[in-house]
């Protein structure tokens, strides 16, 4: 589904990624771990198409198509979803109106009619209950005044609504207490299928107890330095990142 080869990227002239390799197939969950500043979040921004990041070398193929040529919205229309580490507050636009606009924009790009109001409502009800989201919450301005947990839950709610092929969860566990973490992880697990794939970016092993990955990759200094199964995450938790740093 997603193939990344020797990816190099920079922001404002500063080289952040120095050779990332990743091969994600449908039905798989990949975890990307690494110490702070190793380039994990940069990788997610580059995949989603943030304009500040410039790919200087290597390539990214999504279902065989070169991502570099696509705008962020086109990537979303193809089925890439990024759950933000710090979701942006948009005062004046309700969660419901935002998700409606988002869904219908993707449908329009595919030449489909707007989703009917009934179907939209049904879907919103279904997915919000999956994430234990109160209906009052849906009429609030997007992310404005939301707690950290509410923001993350809202991100996964949008993921559930948009049904992406590839979801990238960037530090979705940060700022979540254990109850919220369970709700979010449970939501993500229910969305797993043989047709979609998930990349979980995290600093800690904690989230991976709930969203169990098929593969774990360790990034250090903008490079993929080690890949393995979920046991690698446990090993990292025990030995810490210094173990990786020494290895490099």
């Amino acid at each position: 589904m997603l193939t990344i080869e020797n990816l190099h990227a920079q922001v404002e002239g500063k080289q952040i990624l120095n050779g990332i390799d990743l091969d994600v197939k449908a039905g798989e969950v990949h975890a990307i771990m690494g110490p702070n500043g190793s380039g994990k979040s940069t990788l997610s921004s580059v995949i989603a198409g943030h304009q500040d990041y410039e790919v200087t070398k290597g390539n990214m193929l999504f279902q065989g198509e070169d991502l570099a040529k696509l705008s962020p919205e086109e990537r979303a229309h193809k089925g890439i979803f990024l759950s933000f580490q710090y979701p942006v507050e948009i005062p004046g636009v309700s969660v419901t109106n935002f998700i409606k606009t988002s869904i219908n924009a993707s449908r329009k790009a595919k030449g489909m009619e707007d989703m009917t109001a009934n179907l939209m409502l049904k879907k919103i009800r279904e997915k919000s209950s999956l994430l234990e989201i109160d209906s009052r919450f849906l009429s609030r301005s997007l992310n404005e005044g939301f707690s950290g947990g509410e923001k993350k839950r809202n991100e996964i709610f949008q993921m559930a609504m948009l049904e992406p092929k590839l979801s990238i969860l960037d530090e979705t566990d940060s700022g979540l207490d254990i109850d919220a973490l369970k709700i979010v992880a449970n939501g993500v697990n229910k969305l797993r299928s043989n047709d979609n794939a998930i990349i979980v970016i995290t600093h800690y092993q904690r989230l991976l107890e709930y969203i169990v990955p098929d593969f774990v990759h360790v990034i250090f200094d903008g490079k993929t330095v080690k890949s393995g199964t979920k046991d690698l995450a446990i090993e990292l938790e025990e030995k810490g990142y210094d173990w990786i740093k020494e290895m490099v």
């Binding site: 990537r75 979303a76 979803f81 933000f84 948009i90 004046g92 869904i103 924009a105 301005s141 948009l162």
Partner: peptide
């Protein structure tokens, strides 16, 4: 970028921002 990454094209995203800005 947040809105575009959710599939909302740049022009619509700007319009939505303008609405949101004027909404008060």
């Amino acid at each position: 970028f947040y809105m575009r990454s959710r599939g909302i094209p740049k022009k619509e995203a700007k319009a939505l921002m303008t609405y949101a800005f004027a909404n008060n």
